[in-house]
Structure formats: C-alpha cells, structure tokens
Amino acid sequence: MSLPRYPGYDVLHKRNGPSWNEPTRRAVDARLALPREPRFFDARQWALLNALCARILPQPADRPPVPLAAMVDAKVFERQGDGYRDTRLPHLQDAWTRGLAALDAEAEARHQQPFVALSAGQQDALLTAMQQGMLHHPAWGGMPPALFFSERMVHDITGAYYQHPTAWNEIGFGGPAGPRGYVRLDSDRRDPWEAAEARPGREDEAREANRRVR
C-alpha cells in the first residue's frame, strides 16, 4: 500500500468553524507561538537536541518544520512530567542533561567528534546501539541507555511532533472536533470537514475537497 496523502489539507482552516471552541483556539495558538529560543538547554545541548530531532523525526524540506527542539525544551524547562518515573531514570531535567552528555561522550569515544559533527549514518548507528542497550560509557552514570532512548528521548520528541497541526495534516487527522463532532462513522464515509485522501491519478479532486474543509 502506498502511503496515504492529503494534498492541500490544513486543519487550521477549521480554526474559526464549529469544530474548534475557544479553549482549543487558545491551546493551539499558544503552541504555534512557542518561543524558538531554548530556555533550558545551553548552546551545545541545543545543537545536539536539534540534530537528534532531525534523526528521530525527519521532516520534509518543502514545508516549515515543526519546531521540535523548542517543544522539547519547553517541556523540560516547565518540568512537565508524565506522572510516573521508572526508578532507573532520574528526574526529567536530569535525565535529559545526562543523556545528552552521554551521547556526546559516546560520539567522542567512537569517532573523536561530537554527535552533531557525525554523518547521518553514523548518528543513526549510534542511536540504534542506544536503543538496543549496546552503549556502556561511564557518562550514563547508571541510567540505562535503552530506557532513556524509549521513555525519554523518543517519547518526548515524537510526542511533541504529533501534537502539532502540521503533523495532523500529514496523517489526515481531523484535529479538534468540538462541539461539531462527526456524523459519518462507517469506513470510507468522509464528513465534508475531514481530510480527503488522494486517489491515484485523482489528486486534484482531493485537493479541491480539502480546499473546502472548514
């Protein structure tokens, strides 16, 4: 199956319609207005975090990127915890600080360069080793690399991406839906305010339908 596409669909076109209420507009507006400058991470950590985001959640070049590093920085700065913590992980801020330092230490040990200077292939190899628990530099300080990878790093970066309207457009999600909701619940039954998926060779029809989404 080829990947579904929703040409011209923009969930923000519904912003002033009956699928968004005032609290929703406030919440999404605040997200879109997020400062792009880091408040928690220092310059070196910030560069490393941006490099990580590019590997964990690669974005196409033909549209403005979702500011993933800034969203992660906001979460860490504001100490937005998840309500639970595996005892092998330190607190949110400590975990990120230690994890980034350890990743750079691994890059230096392997390639005598910081992570940001590595090729994409080298970066991915290091991240794969991390996911598989194959890293053992003392800089991890007892924090299991695989746990940091899944529960903190990937969790925080990808969680940020899929709360952004750009990601909702990409996957054809209807987005905010209150108070209007939906009417057609069965499969292959699209409400007029939902994303239209492009059929092979009939991309223009989808684009036209998506232009009418309000």
């Binding site: 199956m1 990947l3 579904p4 596409r5 590997r55 964990i56 959640l57 690669p58 991915d124 991240l127 996911q131 899944s150 990937v154 969790h155 990808t158 969680g159 991406y161 899929y162 709360q163 990601a167 909702w168 990409e170 996957i171 054809g172 999600f173 994303a195 998926e197």
Partner: peptide
Amino acid sequence: PAAWVATQTGNHGLWGQALVDEMRHYNH
C-alpha cells in the same frame, strides 16, 4: 495521534523515517 505515536515508539520501537511512514497509515 499523540497516544498512537506513543504506542508506535514504545512497543513497536519505531523512530526515524520508518515511524513517520507508519504514522501516515493512521486513517487506515
């Protein structure tokens, strides 16, 4: 979407382009 990506990254272990592609099947 946010709950779904947590499933894909947690138990499925996806990241990178493989994750982005898998997420695009969301409506199916």
